[in-house]
């Protein structure tokens, strides 16, 4: 029995060094060499200033930007998470009703116009970087008004939406989606003279 305990201690030390030290360090080395940008968080810089990560959603509630999804953490990544409300939760029902009213009002929609459901429900991570292409298109009118777009700019926005729409990966995996941060960066590019009002 004593021998077994001795072996257990030794092999545990060895495994800790191998699996807890060497393995993650080697993977980090390879990752930094082959995919440095991705390994470091797919950060996006504008004018040498980091404005966010391509993968991590941001809160957008301004008129001049495409809105992102509701988030249980208000897009604070520390820590990530969802609302964890069940479908029989009165609180969830009220939240969805309020979001519906708000979305209809802000985007000046018909009351019966169907709203893409991801705009009414909070995501799992609280950091969902995407919305569906439908959810982007339904907001276009409001943004064009807020920014006083001319017809060239409207055309450019239309093209940007098309370009940034990601179809299911390899044609069959996942859902069609559009990255909200990237789309809003395009908006600012199209609208160079716009002075940020916040």
């Amino acid at each position: 029995m004593k021998t077994q305990i001795k072996i257990a201690l030794k092999i545990f030390i060895l495994f800790t060094v191998l699996l807890g030290g060497i393995y993650p360090l080697v993977i980090t080395g390879v990752a930094q060499l082959v995919f440095p940008e991705k390994a470091n968080g797919s950060l996006i810089a504008v004018d040498n200033k980091v404005v966010g990560s391509k993968l991590i959603g941001q809160k957008f509630n301004s008129d001049i930007y495409f809105s992102s999804r509701p988030s249980a953490t208000d897009y604070n990544p520390l820590p990530s998470g969802g609302s964890n409300l069940g479908l029989t939760s009165e609180k969830l029902k009220q939240q969805v009703d309020e979001r519906k009213l708000q979305f209809v009002k802000v985007n000046q929609l018909d009351e019966n116009e169907p709203i893409p459901s991801e705009m009414l429900f909070a995501s799992a991570s609280g950091l969902d970087p995407h919305i569906s292409p439908d959810a982007a298109i339904i907001q276009v009118g409001r943004i064009e008004n807020a920014r006083n777009f001319n017809s060239t700019q409207k055309q450019q926005l239309f093209q940007a939406i098309n370009r940034l729409t990601e179809e299911p990966q390899f044609l069959f995996l996942g859902e069609a989606r559009i990255n909200v941060l990237q789309l809003n960066l395009e908006l600012d590019k199209i609208d160079v003279n716009h002075i940020r009002n916040n």
Binding site: L87, F121, S123, D128, S132, R177
Partner: peptide, 10 residues
């Protein structure tokens, strides 16, 4: 409604 509470768009 699609039950997207606690689910990710992608």
């Amino acid at each position: 409604l699609h039950l997207m509470e606690g689910k990710e768009t992608r």
